[in-house]
Design a binder for these strands. Structure first.
Length: 569
RNA sequence: UGGGGAGUCGCCAAGCGGUAAGGCACUGGGUUCUGAUCCCAGCAUUCGUAGGUUCGAUCCCUACCUCCCCAGCCA
């Protein structure tokens, strides 16, 4: 029942997926035969960091649409800024996309694959009088750009001759100029109310080693120039990106319009609202600070919203895909409650996780009227709704461990677990009654004593004769193994740790990780890394994919069970 | 004060002139040897506000309000 990377179930598109504005656009395009029925999307990460749950929304959208419309989705690394990009990141991104369950087939691309063409197209633009070499400094360019409310001013270099522009640009490529001395700019309109159209820089000189092209280039194209051309070269039909690129769309279209005689394809850019999740941060800057500041133990810390972190936490690819489908796609800025993600997880895990018994915070329970050295077998189903998954045997003896939370000396109203004089069923075994509480010198409860009713064993005819409401889990003290369990909780205690001027560090949940030594069923020590279980009445847990070892079992709490009484978090 | 977007139930989100889908959450009931799961039922006379057009408006028009994004040789 494991859901490892080698055992990824086929991606299924829910029957009658909710309509959204992007599906509507595609349906309309298909209706008017705009692309001949073709749907080709792409997921274009910059390899400068780890993927997070926000990227997952985009991945599921782009790959999901391709699957739904029997199209193709490319994975393209937007690697035009060697200053920040590294191969380590491309590897982790490849791994995460694959883990999520998507297959780019032959369609793995890099913007850097197009550097030569991109260069040729710029010479073409120059020859058409649509681009020029500017020799102002960074600061001068910024000053002449104007402001949000005032127009920009033309650069004194804007009217250079074609020949001079071409010569300068070729020499830029040859490395004749120092970094920053010249840039290539598109010649559009310095007075445009859209700042992106005020002669945007499309090439800069940067002597930096590129993770794929090495030192072949000392000039690198900018995003706006590169992205639309890469899309067009790959015959993308629908170029889906986030809202902040909305006012870059006129530039996207301008560039492809200038190039229409040499690149016939002109994809449609469509923008959607990026994911914002409560109790989480999606900012790369903050994630770096969390890692480097030691607030978490790395990019794959189970509390991180990175896909690597979610994976280690125990999130399944299917749960993340379900989440992406459930939250929908629109252009409205919105916050998704963390609870939605957690419930998608529970939904998937409830169906797929085998049940096991683990006592997290033990309290000794002794059955006074049970024979001293007697042992008997209890048959425990691996899944309550799936008898076909079979049962396993759990030994029962006189001395057990139960959950400390399952006993209250002075029960609060509505509490129906164990208390002095109260009766409760030891799940899959007998009904017991608490007859004595033993405390140590400092008044802490050390053990409790019960009597059991021999006629009530689960599975026997006598079991039906009596009903008790309380039902608690247990483990034989003689047979239980010890295991490390890491109880994770949300990283932030505030629902919006990262809004505008807030100090996210003030909202870090200092109790987001608790490491305990728990009693586990013996078989659990043989769990495989990434194998997940429901620990009955406690939650879903996964064997840590890094630290789990047969002689040192380590489990991460993925998420608690829903609890309408208030035991969980 | 320029430009680009968005405002439909607690949270998402359909709807595209014909009288408010769905999901999640929540509430009530049932099942249950997990206070889990599952099942069943309930849950916007109302669509940011104010006008207007129309037999009829969440959908069209006008004005206003609120929120988000944009002045990297980042993506």
């Amino acid at each position: 029942m494991k859901d490892t990377i080698k055992d990824i179930p086929a991606i299924t598109i829910p029957i009658g997926p909710a309509s959204n504005f992007i599906r509507n656009i595609i349906d309309e395009d298909n209706r008017i035969n705009k692309w001949g029925g073709r749907v080709e999307t792409r997921f274009p990460p910059e390899p400068n960091g780890y993927l997070h749950i926000g990227h997952a929304k985009s991945i599921c959208l782009n790959f999901g649409l391709a699957i739904e419309y029997q199209g193709i989705c490319h994975l393209r690394f937007d690697d035009t800024n060697p200053e920040k990009e590294e191969k380590e990141y491309v590897d982790s991104i490849l791994d995460s996309v694959r883990w999520l369950g998507f297959d780019w087939g032959e369609h793995l691309h890099y913007s850097s694959d197009y550097f030569e063409k991109l260069y040729e197209f710029s010479e073409y633009l120059i020859s058409q009088g649509k681009a020029y070499v500017d020799s102002m400094t960074n600061e001068e360019i910024r000053k002449l750009r104007g402001t949000l409310t005032t127009a920009g001013t033309n650069s004194p270099y804007r009217e250079r001759s074609l020949a001079e522009n071409l010569d300068l640009f070729r020499r830029m490529r040859l490395g004749e100029f120092a970094d920053g001395v010249h840039v290539l700019r598109a010649k559009i309109n310095m007075a445009s109310p859209n700042i992106n159209l005020r002669d945007p820089v499309i090439y800069r000189i940067r002597r930096i080693h590129h993770h794929r092209t090495g030192d072949k280039w000392c000039i690198y194209p900018m995003y706006d120039y590169t992205h639309c051309i890469s899309d067009a070269l790959e015959n993308i039909t629908h170029s889906i990106c986030t809202l902040e690129f909305e006012d870059h769309r006129p530039l996207y279209d301008w560039i492809l319009t200038q190039l229409k005689d040499i690149i016939p394809c002109h994809p449609q850019q469509i923008e959607f609202a990026r994911l914002k999740l409560t109790y989480a941060v999606m900012s790369k800057r903050i994630m770096i600070e969390l890692v480097e500041g030691g607030f978490v133990e790395g990019w794959d810390d189970p509390r991180m919203p990175t896909l690597a972190g979610l994976r280690r936490r125990g999130y399944t690819p299917a749960s993340i895909r379900l989440f992406a489908e459930r939250i929908g796609v629109s252009k409205a800025d919105s916050w998704i409650d963390m609870g939605v993600l957690e419930n998608c997880l529970r939904e998937d895990l409830n169906i797929h996780a085998q049940r096991r018994i683990v006592v997290l915070k033990p309290l000794k329970l002794i059955i006074d009227n049970y024979p001293d050295s007697y042992e008997e077998e209890c048959f425990v189903p691996n899944h309550p709704q799936k008898p076909e998954w079979g049962n396993r045997v759990v030994p029962f003896t006189k001395t057990l461990y139960i959950e400390r939370d399952d006993f209250m000396e002075i029960p609060s109203k509505g509490y129906f677990r164990l208390a002095p004089g109260a009766e409760v069923r030891l799940r899959y075994a007998y009904i017991v009654k608490c007859i004595k509480v033993v405390k140590n010198a400092s008044g802490e409860i050390e053990e409790i004593h019960c009597s059991y009713d021999p006629d009530t064993k689960s599975g026997t005819t006598g079991t039906k004769a009596r009903k008790v409401k309380g039902n608690i889990h247990w483990l034989s003290s003689k047979h239980a193994f010890k295991g490390e369990v890491r109880l994770f909780d949300r990283l932030f205690s505030d629902s919006h740790p990262d809004v505008s001027d807030r100090d996210y560090q003030a909202h870090i949940n200092t109790n987001s990780k608790e490491i305990i030594s728990a009693y586990i069923e013996p078989a659990l020590s043989e769990a495989q890394p990434e194998e997940f279980f429901q620990f009955e009445r406690n939650g879903y847990f996964v064997a840590d994919r890094v630290d789990m070892k047969p002689d040192r079992p380590v489990f991460n709490r993925t998420v608690t069970l829903r609890d309408s009484w208030g035991k969980g978090t």
